[in-house]
Structure formats: structure tokens, C-alpha cells
Design a protein around this nucleic acid. Structure first.
Lengths: 190, 190
DNA sequence: GCGGGACTGTGACTTGGATCACATATGCTA
DNA sequence: TAGCATATGTGATCCAAGTCACAGTCCCGC
């Protein structure tokens, strides 16, 4: 199974070569360099991205100019500003590459066509959405219940491979902790 | 449109009387009194609930015995511990009635049967799931970016009708703020 | 109608973590 | 290879919000 998108779909349901070829038609591919913006704030968002390689961050800037991270996405993950995509409105977030990234892109029109042509794809997206929903729920509970130290340790446990790939400043903005507090956290048994 | 469940489905797609009758077969109905537990921690969860009337809270207790609110659900909302339901594991949360509540219940088996029989129901649940996902995303950003005062004001704006129905202690546990801080918040221009 | 529990307000005190300020290290890029 | 931006560590200070303690209110059941 050399194709990541196909294997991702087949984690949910097995498909034939012909089906995958037809599904594949709905996607384009894009290549980004480190630092490139995939979505800028205030833009309209008509595309979902399936990350083939690389790492991106979805972030929100508050009125004080402070960055907050809504989520990260790496290989094998779907990402976009779902709020803007689903409601066809302008993005309040920014999607930017932390590493050089390649992605399959799926437009809203093709997304709808895909679900209409292959009903099991609706089930596939439902599966993804529910998992995302559950992950968000867990993140909310972590934000509510954990100390900075515990948040960091939980992140380490959940995404050990990501910790080395993400600048600490950005990780702090994801955890909801100041850069300095995060930095002080490695030694102390807090 | 007297039936809340039907009108909720028809917000997504129009259905015939016959279809609704067949769909309706998949559900049972339950009645709870104020304070009743719908789901207790450590129980397995095999049911989704569609709230017809009333108000429930989904909460998590940390190791210090402090309660944290994952979410509220009122009339016209779907609720359960989705993590436990979807992965068929034990609940880490508690679902409890803040008011006398009536709900349609849908078992996992019937949920699957429903989606298999009426493919558009998969689309309906996908729609619900995406909206839930987006709401959770927004909640995460609120927790990351807003001051206690701003969190309270945003809640007021998003759910004006809920504020009167939820004890302040519980609301504080939802906002991630202490009861006392929330209480002090009404007067000051903080 | 009485008593005990949940709910809420409010003062006094404490503190975790933010903020500020600066220093060092590690690149890229020209 | 110099030079500037990015990333990180660390000390000193401050303050928003948590915690603790107590009092008043409301409501429900016996």
C-alpha cells in the first residue's frame, strides 16, 4: 500500500483499484515550503487538505497579536479551517507550514461529488469527523483539568514524535502556557 | 411539525411520513428526573441520546474530586459520551440531568442499522458531527484566548437562554473559572 | 413550618504562572 | 564568513485568579 490517502481510506473500508482511481480524480496535489501559508486569515476556504508529508499549524491571532494554536496536522491527517469551509465563510485562522509539506487537496464541490458518487465516503468522513470530535473533547478536558506540567506530559505521551518537530514557542501556544513556563518545566518536578 | 426529532432531521433533509415512521422505530424513549444519572463513570455506553426536553451536563471529575463540564445539552441536541460510545469502552464521564429530561435513545446497533437502511442518515449524522467539531474548536480557542470575564460574556451571547437554567457553580466549571471569580464578575468592568 | 442541603455572595490571603528583561545559541542567507 | 532573525534558557517582579472561610438565601421534603 504505497499511497497514503488510499491506505487512510482503507483503514475504514476496502476499495478496488478502479474505485480508488475514480476517487483520486477528485483530488489535486500541492507542494508547500516551510513557512508557506496555506490559508491566510480573512480568506475564503474552499478546500480540505490531506497531508501527505510535512507538518502544519492552524492558528488564531488574538487582538493583542498573540498567536494561539487550534491544532497541528501531520502526515495522514486531514486539515482545514472547517468552520470557514463548512459554512463557506472567511477564515478566522491561518494555516501555515512548520515543515515543507505536500498535500492532496479536495474542493467543496469535489467533496460533495465524491460523497454522492461513493456513499461509503460519507461514512469515511463521518468516521474522521467523530474521531476529531472526540479528540477535541479530550483537549477541552485537558485544558480544563491539567496543570501546565501535566499538559506538557500528556502531549509528550500522545504525540511523542511531534515534540521534536515543533518549536517550543509554538508548542506553548498550543498548550495554553507561556513560553517561559514551558521552558522551566523540563527540570522541575512541579 | 410537532415532532422535534423529525424536524431536526428535516433541517438537514426532507423525509416522507413513511420514512420517519421507519426511522422512529429505531428509537426508544426515556424519562429522567432532575438529578438523575443517565450515564455514570466507568459504565459502558451503548446509546446516543436525543434530548426532547430538559437539560443535561456531561462532566468529568479529576483526581482532586473537582468537577469539570465537558458540555451541556438541551432540547434538540444529541448527546452521549462519544468517546465511550464510539470505541465501545467505559465512560470516563458522567451524564446527569440538570432538569427533568425526556430523550429519544438510539443504541449502537440501531444506529448502524439506521445508517445502512437510510444512507442519508449518515449524511445527517456527519452534518451533526461536523457542527459539533466546529463548536469544540471554537470552545478550545475561547479557553486559550479569553479572560474569565470574556468567557462569561461569550457564553451569555452564545447561549443566552441557558444562563438562567444553569447553576453558577456548574457554569464556572464549564468556563474553567472558579465559582468565586465568576460570582465577582457581574459588577466589575474587568 | 422546620431543618438541612444546595446555591450564591463577599472579604482576606496566597500563589502559580504571566510578564519583563536579558543572555546565549543556532541557524539561514547574502 | 559575517550578520541578523529565530529559538531558547533563566532570573526578578507582579498580579489575576484560586483558595479558604463564613454568611445569607432559597427551596424541598418530612
Amino acid at each position: 500500500m504505497s499511497n497514503l490517502l488510499r491506505s487512510n481510506i482503507e483503514d475504514y473500508v476496502k476499495i478496488t483499484d478502479d474505485d480508488f482511481a475514480a476517487i483520486r480524480q477528485h483530488f489535486d496535489q500541492m507542494v508547500f515550503r516551510k513557512g508557506d501559508f496555506i490559508i491566510r486569515a480573512q480568506e475564503s476556504v474552499s478546500t480540505i487538505y490531506f497531508i501527505q508529508s510535512g507538518l502544519v499549524k492552524l492558528s488564531y491571532w488574538d487582538q493583542d497579536g498573540k498567536e494561539h494554536i487550534a491544532s497541528f496536522a501531520m502526515e495522514n491527517w486531514w486539515e482545514t479551517d472547517f468552520n470557514a469551509f463548512y459554512h463557506q465563510s472567511r477564515s478566522s485562522c491561518t494555516l501555515q507550514c512548520l515543515e515543507a509539506t505536500t498535500a492532496y487537496t479536495l474542493s467543496l464541490k469535489n467533496y460533495q461529488h465524491l460523497c454522492a458518487t461513493f456513499p461509503f465516503m460519507t461514512g469515511y468522513f463521518l468516521d474522521k469527523s467523530i474521531r476529531g470530535h472526540i479528540a477535541n473533547q479530550n483537549r477541552i478536558l485537558s485544558l480544563l483539568t491539567l496543570s501546565p506540567k501535566e499538559k506538557y506530559e500528556q502531549f509528550l505521551q500522545l504525540y511523542p514524535s511531534l515534540v521534536q518537530r515543533i518549536p517550543k514557542t509554538i508548542l506553548a501556544a498550543y498548550l495554553g502556557v507561556s513560553r517561559e513556563t514551558l521552558s522551566r518545566m523540563y527540570r522541575s518536578r512541579k
